[in-house]
Nucleic acid binder design. Structure first.
Lengths: 190, 190
DNA sequence: ATATTATGAATGAATCATCATTCACCAAGA
DNA sequence: TCTTGGTGAATGATGATTCATTCATAATAT
């Protein structure tokens, strides 16, 4: 079981799912894209849904690492947020197909009990909430409801990604962090 | 062809699609929910997809009316935005199932050329962009890129709705406008 | 008023295409 | 030889959509 084959399938699936959406994605098309046989997919994944789960799990893991790194950095909340934003957006610039999936595929009861999408949609706002709560304690940001504010920030991030992808204008992801941070900073700074 | 029957189907479909998602929604389940026969659905809609299209079209129409009303109101940008936010959130409080659909179902090539979802995701940010550009001209808001900022605001709105629904806490939609407006105002006010 | 006919909404069993998944069989390397 | 991984045709389930039929009501005729 070479790990490369699994990676090959993941990448092919990202390409196809970004184009067609999960439900319109045929296993056969993923196989074509990966240059392998349909059956091979099932040597590495138990189901089509597992592939999507895996895609989300990989992306979530990256973000969790970013957020963990950022947490331990010697910097104020705003610098932390900026670092995270840049990493997140750069990741998406490098692979817009993944970005499309991250903003498009929503949590729904699929066949097996899907989990990774829910995790993604929960864990990131939750970590933002944590950072924000911390910043509040340190008096780094203005009084606010950190839970709602985290939801607002996460939503805004998703909104920017959606816009960039819809307009097929990835350079937006370069200027967006600045615009977003400028707004948030003035909005929340003490 | 009574109009009521179409409405009955729309409402039943909203309930089922909010619970299961579009692709997991069976026509037979919609029929059950509406207390009619499967075939009847097809006297009013050409396809399952048409039902979803119709759901989005109805909701978009409402928002367009709100935004049109707001545009002509004698008030500054912030009051306009607040009025719209309250109307939008109240609409969702009254029917959270619809809200779930509005934040969950994304634009993808379905069988026929789906249009309404794309319209919804495009038209609202576009109108916000318009209002914002106007406000900029009048010096009502701080210098900003209205296109990106509109995407940020729309994303933030969607984020709040998602949060409220995920947490099954609709009262969030009462306090959220205030929180969101506070942030945006300070962030964008001159 | 009563009978006759037309209309079209409603029905749901039957159809039919669509894939995800399986698995019997290969091929290559150890 | 044996094991591991690859293959893709065949399977089987699923579920959207169709359509022949029913039936209530309306329109028209007697």
């Amino acid at each position: 079981m070479e790990e490369n084959k699994k990676e090959l399938i993941r990448k092919a699936a990202i390409k196809v799912m970004a184009e067609m959406g999960f439900y319109n994605t045929k296993a056969s098309r993923i196989a074509d894209e990966a240059g392998i046989a349909v059956g091979t997919i099932y040597n590495y994944f138990n189901s089509k849904e597992d592939i999507l789960e895996y895609i989300f799990a990989v992306e979530l893991e990256k973000r969790m690492v970013y957020l963990e790194q950022v947490k331990n950095v010697e910097a104020d909340f705003w610098e932390k947020l900026e670092i995270f934003l840049r990493k997140h957006f750069n990741e998406i610039k490098d692979n817009p197909d993944t970005g499309k999936i991250l903003v498009s595929e929503k949590e729904f009861p699929r066949k097996s009990g899907s989990k990774a999408i829910g995790d993604y949609l929960y864990a990131i706002p939750d970590k933002l909430d944590y950072l924000l709560t911390d910043a509040l304690k340190n008096g780094e940001v203005k009084e606010c409801n950190p839970e709602i504010t985290a939801a607002i920030i996460f939503g805004a991030i998703q909104g920017v990604v959606e816009k960039a992808i819809k307009n097929d204008n990835l350079t937006l992801l370069d200027s967006a962090p600045e615009e977003l941070l400028k707004l948030l900073k003035r909005g929340l700074n003490i």
